[in-house]
Nucleic acid binder design. Structure first.
Length: 288
DNA sequence: CGATTTTGACCTGCGC
DNA sequence: GCGCAGGTCAAAATCG
């Protein structure tokens, strides 16, 4: 995530510095821009290192958790069979089956980044929607809005829009049914397949070829939310939007898990202790 | 004035 | 059978 973006960023800076240094030795130049770029490069490197450590921590946690689950699975008396694990939704087993499509593929989910202060539940996707209900669900304090396609009188397409539980600035739009008509031809909001992004930060209001990336991210499950996060961050760097990066970082800082993971990583680099030992700090997983 | 949104009531299916 | 929770309805309110 950050690693890729940071490398892109640092690569660009290096190029600029190289260009400046082409005719004169670097030390002779002492141009303020060079100093700025140097400090920026250093900052990005530091950030890269910190995030690399965080990534190590998280992947190790994942591996450990996975092996722990496998252990549970092996115990026939109190363990849950793998079949059961597959059939039970991880977020809320009490959810009604009506939410899912037992016979068809999973409903399409789109993650749309909006402005943090934008509290509307509008996702412009090239179709005309009419809101017919709103509910507060048990698993998410943010209300869920229900929309029906109003472009055709008998269009069966519907969608639900709710803010992401982990990041209120992200809208999760779940599409049910298919349109029996074409999409609007709005230059600003229409994509080749009728799904695009608008009403959101520039980082997702991107050129058509990149909008496809948003669709690729339109997968189901929380892991996609995480992917969305990382893709957002990449776009943020591409647009050189420091402000948005700061917003993202501040949201990470507010996340206790992130803080804890970062603290672990920092502690590890300081103490040089064995990795696995530290990882057990807040996992509460029995030692092997 | 028609289209759209809001919102409380109602419907429906599932688990206990 | 009952309660819970998600989904839908429809009248009232609001908007352009």
């Amino acid at each position: 995530m950050f690693l890729y973006a940071a490398n892109l960023c640092s690569g660009k800076k290096n190029q600029e510095v190289d260009t400046l240094n082409h005719s004169k030795p670097y030390t002779e130049y002492a141009h303020p821009l060079v100093e700025t770029l140097k400090s920026e490069l250093q900052r990005v490197r530091d950030e890269n290192n910190a995030l690399r450590l965080m990534f190590e921590v998280l992947s190790s946690k994942y591996t450990k958790l996975e092996s722990y689950l496998q252990e549970i699975d092996k115990k026939p008396d109190k363990g849950i069979s793998s079949n059961e694990i597959e059939s039970v939704p991880t977020f809320d087993a009490n959810k009604r089956s009506r939410l899912e499509f037992p016979t068809a593929k999973k409903p399409l989910q789109i993650f749309v980044k909006t402005h943090p202060r934008d509290d509307s539940l509008i996702v412009k996707d090239g179709y005309h929607w009419r809101k017919y209900g709103q509910k507060v669900t048990k698993d998410n304090a943010s209300p869920r809005a229900y929309f029906r396609c109003s472009m055709a009188p008998i269009c069966p397409a519907k969608k639900k829009v709710q803010r992401c539980l982990h990041d209120k600035s992200i809208l999760v739009a779940t599409y049910d049914g298919e349109h029996n008509h074409g999409a609007l031809h709005e230059s600003s909001s229409s994509a080749p397949n009728g799904i695009s992004v608008a009403n959101q930060l520039p980082l997702t209001s991107i050129a058509n070829d990149k909008e496809a990336m948003n669709i690729d991210l339109a997968l189901s499950g929380w892991s996609q939310t995480d992917r969305r996060h990382s893709e957002d961050v990449m776009h943020q760097h591409n647009y050189d939007s420091t402000l948005k990066v700061e917003e993202y970082v501040s949201s990470l800082i507010k996340d206790p898990e992130f803080t804890m993971s970062l603290a672990e990583a920092v502690a590890r680099t300081i103490t040089g202790q064995h990795k696995q030992q530290d990882l057990n700090l807040n996992l509460n997983i029995p030692e092997e």
